[in-house]
Nucleic acid binder design. Structure first.
Lengths: 337, 337
DNA sequence: CTGAAAGCGCTAACAG
DNA sequence: CTGTTAGCGCTTTCAG
């Protein structure tokens, strides 16, 4: 059985209150008694029970993080940032995976609440849960931070990338290279795809280059199958479309596009320019290395953690928008057709 | 303020005991009162406080997971497996990152204990903590499972891969294809590389094909730079060595090898066969898709979770060694020279 | 079938 | 400076 504060008190011949004071160092204790208590703690290998402490204090130092999937390295890198910031503030991180399923996402969150987390970070919240105003009820009693959510709800802090601006930069880069027929690859169930599509449509229309047939939906965008799905989808379509460039909503899709071109005998970037989004490590592992928009996942994570702790402590919401920068590598070049 | 069991009891005009019975369904309650309680729960949006429940029941349904780094996708995939198994059993997962630092690893674990986890999974435990018998003291009061630890301590459950056997299979596969000059690519600072090298040397010697010059050390084996390091290292060497095949200690190195061949104008697998190790998702994202030994990280995770829950419930330790199976894809073929 | 009451381990008045 | 004690929200005997 694990030692409790009572065991320590008995061993040191003091009251539990004194032990508590020694442990927390929040009230004066005579040095000599302190020593005695410390020794008892050592000998019994006493570790305070945080559950009991938090039950008593009506607060908690655990925060919950929900991700839609762990298969896209994007999420691992964001979690890395969150964990890094949190551990400095001695918060703990409860992790749950929603498996790209809105029901599951809601279940994860209810579970967090049961476990008395002091706040929750949701990475790429499922649009369905936003529409059904699941979150609107939630924010009454919970501190929430959304990472990369398009719909802005009241009483929630946000950290997101300026994906609108990022998409403009990516598109402009392609346009500057002379590309006119630019395919747009997106997935389902994420706001982030919608933001980019809106920007894509606006930019292309403004240039008089818009063609709805160029918008391709590859389905699930964050699974193991995303790369292959994107590849097959493109191979099906490209025969009928004479595009010279592809702008994809994430790097997984971009890799699929690269593979499709290889399979079809198209040289990159001579015959086809491809630009991805995220800059996950995968993007520079492949050959040719991917030109992509960097989302700086680590910063996304640390900022979210910072906002959440601020929200917990002050009740104030804040929105942070990070800039995405272009990482120019080997999959883009001038339009030669 | 969140509703408590007392609020529900008051609203439904019953005792807290009855509410508890309704919530847990473990004792008979008259249907009519049950209805009344359920209605009160709905109206108050009551969610049981698991901290309080667990404090009372002296048990917990949280488990802690320590990883040395979150940067490597290997770990993300293992965590995915753990999370998947745990969520079925309605356990929650507390995640901490030790940042490749033994002190930090110990701190993470003490923190878990404070938070009353019912067990801990350590992925690739730090050798230093094993030597200083930090863990030996720990196991008295804690259920521990190690993933991929080569040092075996008493009272700990293990799940690991049979990398010796896996290496034999990989090498034999290459030998069966007629390859005689097989390069071996390894990194630093991991037992796992040593196991594979020992096997490599033994197998090659037995065939009379051993050549120490064929052993290549690429340095850090799990960083972002591993792919490129491996590529440059190989490009430097291959000119002088007339190898026809390469066996690498992980997929990152294998991808580097593939890229090196591409850069040098060698066709894969016609001019060079390459076999990796791990089967991280990256291995089938690239083109040509990598032949590799599957470490099945997901299974590593689910098995660890299973063993941990078994250990928690029965106190029994177990060692599970998973077989690594060959995933034959597109980077290997017969020796044509 | 239901209620009263005793804790789980801890903190924080309050009283010495 | 230190001890006593009342809860935090919940489960579970033990009586009715």
């Amino acid at each position: 059985m694990k030692a409790t504060i009572i065991d320590v008190a008995a061993k040191a011949s003091v009251s539990v209150a004194t032990v508590s004071r020694v442990v927390n160092g929040n009230y004066p204790v005579k040095e000599e008694t302190r020593q005695r208590v410390m020794r008892a703690i050592e000998e019994l290998r006493y570790v305070p029970n945080i559950q009991a402490r938090e039950l008593n204090m009506q607060k908690s130092t655990t925060i919950g993080v929900v991700v839609p999937s762990l298969y896209n390295m994007f999420f691992a890198e964001v979690i890395n940032g969150i964990e890094d910031y949190l551990s400095r503030d001695s918060y703990s991180l409860l992790l749950s995976c929603a498996k790209n399923n809105p029901k599951q996402e809601a279940k994860c969150i209810n579970d967090f609440i049961s476990r008395n987390v002091s706040g929750i970070i949701v990475i790429s919240p499922n649009t369905e849960n936003i529409e059904t105003n699941f979150y609107e009820q939630l924010v009454q009693h919970q501190s929430i931070v959304f990472i990369n959510s398009y719909a802005k709800l009241p009483n929630i802090s946000y950290v997101s990338n300026d994906e609108d601006m990022g998409s403009r930069i990516a598109l402009q880069y392609l346009l500057d290279y002379g590309h006119k027929k630019i395919l747009f690859l997106r997935g389902i169930n994420s706001d982030s795809y919608q933001i980019k599509e809106d920007t894509y449509i606006e930019v292309m229309k403004k240039k008089g280059l818009y063609n709805p047939a160029y918008i391709v939906n590859v389905g699930e965008g964050n699974g193991t199958e995303t790369v292959d799905n994107s590849m097959y989808k493109l191979m099906d379509m490209m025969l009928n479309l004479d595009a010279t460039a592809i702008f994809t909503c994430n790097d997984l899709m971009a890799v699929g596009a690269v593979n499709a071109c290889k399979k079809m005998g198209l040289q990159i970037p001579r015959d086809m320019s491809i630009i991805g989004y995220d800059n996950i490590s995968l993007s520079h592992f492949i050959e040719p290395k991917l030109t992509t928009m960097d989302q700086n996942m680590f910063a996304l994570g640390t900022n979210a953690a910072e906002l959440l702790i601020e929200k917990i402590q002050t009740g104030k919401n804040k929105k942070v928008v990070l800039d995405n920068i272009l990482i120019e590598r080997d999959t883009t070049g001038p339009c030669l057709r």
